[in-house]
């Protein structure tokens, strides 16, 4: 692992009893870059986000963050390590404590990690508010007094309060109006540039991911089926699922590619062989019996599909 890699996840899996929510997920994020996980609901994106932060205990796999194996940390050490990794949640109405003022909300992470004196903590809170373009008057207000976008700004400010190396953002704008989404996304990008924060960005919205991410992993039924730099994924998608996903996106001419049919199968009963075969327009016998391996196809792009073998052989 190069020293510039902040997060490296290997073989991460999570089963909830019979349900395999996340299966053998591996990726790494270089410092200051954004890795996007995209997929339909039920594809295991959010679970992956929680596994990375050990908010959910992984069944298998390792999470290397800043050179430490998170999976092996004791609960006390893990809590201390949380200073360096923060999260932004989807629901700006649920993730803030309704009984804590904005001041308390922004001071809280500093207090629990013992950062600064009370006066310094307050100064930091004021600076954070300014950074997310909120007036200072907001300090003594409570979450219910704000709109969704304003609350998400507060949540972002809270995530920045400990000056973390990595932020995990789980669908941070999907609960917001479209007009507000762009503002919040721009804000997140500005802040990332300013602080050099590494980001794991989860979204089902392809346009949002394209805007935010340097590298993208496409998830289907708990697995990453294709992974690569943004321009490769959007310009030359190799996996039929990625192709179908892009074709289904609004505003794209979907005529030349097959759109997605049906729904994602239940994680209770993952299809044999390739998990995507039940909805794949190109599926053939081999897909039923053999699980395709991840295969590098140049330019840092890789995908798991038997069609790529055939293409390589031809």
């Amino acid at each position: 692992m190069s020293p510039e890699t902040v997060l490296s996840v290997t073989g991460l899996s999570k089963s909830f009893r019979a349900v395999k929510a996340v299966r053998d997920v591996s990726f790494s994020i270089p410092r200051g870059k954004t890795f996007g996980l995209v997929g339909e609901s039920g594809s295991g994106k959010s679970t992956t986000a929680r596994l990375v932060l050990r908010l959910v205990e992984p069944t298998a796999g390792s999470i290397s963050f800043r050179g430490k194996d998170l999976a092996g940390l004791s609960s006390g050490d893990l809590r201390a390590e949380r200073r360096h990794m923060q999260m932004i949640f989807q629901d700006p109405f649920g993730s803030l404590n309704p009984r804590m003022s904005v001041r308390d909300t922004l001071v809280e992470p500093q207090v629990v990690h013992g950062i600064g004196t009370p006066a310094e903590q307050l100064k930091t809170a004021e600076r954070l508010l300014a950074e997310v373009s909120m007036p200072r008057a907001a300090l003594d207000r409570y979450p219910h007094e704000f709109s969704g976008g304003q609350r998400q700004r507060i949540a972002i400010a809270r995530a920045l309060a400990t000056n973390p190396e990595m932020i995990v953002a789980d669908e941070p704008v999907s609960a917001l109006d479209v007009s507000v989404q762009a503002q919040v996304l721009n804000l997140m990008r500005d802040l990332q540039d300013r602080h050099g924060t590494t980001m794991l960005f989860i979204s089902h919205d392809l346009r949002v991911v394209q805007f935010m991410c340097d590298e993208i992993g496409v998830m289907y039924l708990g697995e990453i089926v294709e992974q690569g730099p943004r321009d490769r994924i959007y310009g030359a998608p190799a996996h039929p699922y990625t192709q179908a996903l892009l074709a289904s996106a609004p505003g794209k001419a979907g005529g030349q590619r097959a759109r997605l049919k049906g729904e994602i199968p239940s994680a209770h009963a993952v299809p044999s062989g390739c998990a995507f075969r039940t909805r794949c327009p190109h599926a053939f016998e081999r897909c039923t019996v053999e699980k395709p391996a991840m295969r590098a196809i140049g330019g840092g792009q890789k995908a798991a599909c038997h069609l790529l073998d055939a293409a390589a052989a031809a």
């Binding site: 908010l55 949640f89 629901d91 649920g94």
Partner: peptide, 26 residues
Amino acid sequence: ELQMIEAARSVGVPTLRLFTRYILPA
């Protein structure tokens, strides 16, 4: 099960503080 509890845990709030500042007020 509220998200604010998960959010507080992700911030690194210790369990006792979680009770006194998040759960009991709620």
